[in-house]
Design a protein around this nucleic acid. Structure first.
Lengths: 348, 348
DNA sequence: CTGAAAGCGCTTACAG
DNA sequence: CTGAAAGCGCTTACAG
């Protein structure tokens, strides 16, 4: 009864725990013969290292903490998928902590992770967070910290984000290339950075193609299906300069826009172009399927984890200066933006 | 430099680490006055317990391991959401391990979790797994194990599943109540338990309403959009007894069926009823919106975590006999099954 | 190449 | 009510 320890193996072989430990950890000063016999015996006795004991002594836990709003949001589910995949290949485990967008939970999460002596933390901050003391404590302890998506420059840590500006630029340019000329934008609240960036991308894409910005074609929504519908109804009521295409700030807004278009008199395929942003799970399956911008969510997690793994190495040597990784958005072309409705499948 | 330990607090107060430890853990034999001063000092010195050290000594880690195919699948994302929420309120952390449906990864995951001395494991087994030795090892060590969704009776552990039979029964009965009488079923591979249960629910619902089973109306698909489309095309070609409704084994199959229906001559609203299973993210947003069965995924995680928390208590006293929790499926009524197309919104 | 010894930071019987 | 001491299972400078 009771798990096999290195002492059991040592006793079996008439040697010491120190030697067994070194052998199992492939320490260079142990003879090949010794390593061999130790490993064999360990296997025979069904030995499994006690990582807790190892961690306490060595100061390394091989655990990283991930702090996200909710695993129930597909975006974050996909990111932690990427994180865990990379972490695993480097021998690290992942502790998951959800904040549910609450600042207090975030503070508590960081504290628990510090108590657990994690070797690093990857986080996406809550919408509520404006005080960063808990993250500063992480830095003060010398624990590598990576922020993704919801990042801030205030902390001077490495970040992984997607290029919202470029994504919006691509979306708008795609509509132009399809031959649309009066492209409207349903924006989100401008004080939120990602939405502001998407607005900028839209504006600059038009400018780059020498199209004058028409303020009437920019409307500010509340990032919801309902809001997308309402905004679109307004846009379609414009007397002159009615838009012939809409770039919506994200897919749910686009979905509402699509409904409004379908209910309008301009409901023929290709009549009003539409592009969303996010590549939500539903966007491939609605009718018409929605052209959108993919955010490479799993890649985002992988890159964040890779940054963290790099910093694990770097710790020994010298502090690395914070890195800023900006992922390329991907244009996913589907039916909703195609000017000429060619024969296509709904799903793609 | 260096974290505050209980020894630092003890020195500050001219007492011993033992007393500090007891005070912080609210041990009954410590005076209220002592507890008060210890807590104050701990706070002043910014003390945080080292959970690793605590775990090594006490044998309890307050960590549970969760083993799932992938966090990138919305079903599992939702379940781990539920698990983490409950675990947190009980002071437990969650280590996440993904198998990506590979048996070897599952074995390795269980091994890592055992090395980390987790206090319990919640898992959903891979499609590949047919050898359960790694799970038996968990049992042998006396570590509580809970299986959800992909469960097996072979291990004699507690499980949380959804009532697939009942969900299918409800789906079929709903179509009957809408006035459909020739209800077809696109089934999945029958050797997979959940699909077989859904087939049984369909058959029994018809029987309960004295409707004779027509073997021509039961077709076996491959659980994909394409398969749903093909199967539906076949069904609609039946000369006599053409179905007036279809119950699809899951939502992607239903999506393919919906496309086939729309492309057919029976494409008027309410002409052919359709119900899916799973309440996938897209199902509310396609046109028409898809009636389906919700699997209460977050609740599944919560129930699994609650079972595990119960067993943490029980361990001290006596082994609890394994429990089997069967969750109620929820019928989500949307447009695709409505006989009379009343005025409705697309999303609900 | 191997061993003896100390110690990571806690918890907890055993005394008093 | 508090203290002295042992020990959880490892790792790792220090000797030889």
């Amino acid at each position: 009864m009771g798990r096999t320890t290195i002492h059991d193996i040592a006793k079996e072989l008439n040697t010491t725990a120190a030697t067994v430990s070194r052998a199992l950890n492939d320490h260079p000063s142990i003879s090949a013969a010794m390593k061999e016999i130790v490993r064999k015996t360990a296997h025979q006795l069904n030995y499994q290292q006690n990582r807790i004991a190892s961690s306490l002594r060595s100061g390394k836990t091989f655990v990283i903490g991930v702090v996200i709003p909710s695993a129930d949001i597909s975006f974050f589910g996909s990111v932690i998928h990427g994180i865990e995949m990379v972490a695993k290949t480097h021998g690290y485990n992942v502790i998951l902590f959800q904040t549910n967008e609450r600042y207090e939970d975030e503070v508590q999460g960081i504290q628990t992770l510090l108590q657990s002596n994690v070797d690093g933390i990857i986080a996406s901050i809550t919408k509520e967070t404006s005080n960063f003391d808990h993250f500063l404590e992480v830095k003060r302890r010398g624990i590598p910290l990576i922020l993704f998506d919801r990042a801030t420059d205030e902390l001077g840590v490495s970040t992984v984000v997607i290029d919202d500006y470029k994504g919006a630029f691509m979306a708008t340019e795609h509509l132009l290339q399809q031959g649309y000329t009066r492209i409207a934008h349903i924006a989100g609240p401008s004080h939120i950075k990602i939405f502001h960036e998407r607005l900028r991308g839209y504006v600059d894409a038009l400018a780059a193609h020498h199209i004058k910005i028409d303020e009437d074609l920019i409307t500010y929504g509340k990032v919801s299906i309902e809001s997308g519908r309402t905004c679109t109804q307004q846009l379609l009521q414009l007397q002159k300069n009615r838009p012939d295409a809409i770039f919506a700030v994200e897919d749910f807004t686009a979905l509402g826009a699509m409904e409004a278009i379908k209910e309008s008199q301009w409901n023929r395929p290709g009549q009003i172009g539409l592009v969303g942003f996010a590549n939500e799970a539903f966007s491939a399956y609605i009718t018409p399927s929605l052209t959108t911008i993919d955010q490479q969510t799993a890649l985002m997690g992988q890159e964040a984890a890779k940054l963290l793994m790099d910093q694990q190495q770097a710790e020994q040597h010298h502090e690395k200066s914070p890195q800023k990784i900006v992922l390329e958005p991907l244009l996913i072309q589907r039916q909703s933006s195609m000017r000429r409705q060619t024969k296509q499948k709904t799903a793609s």
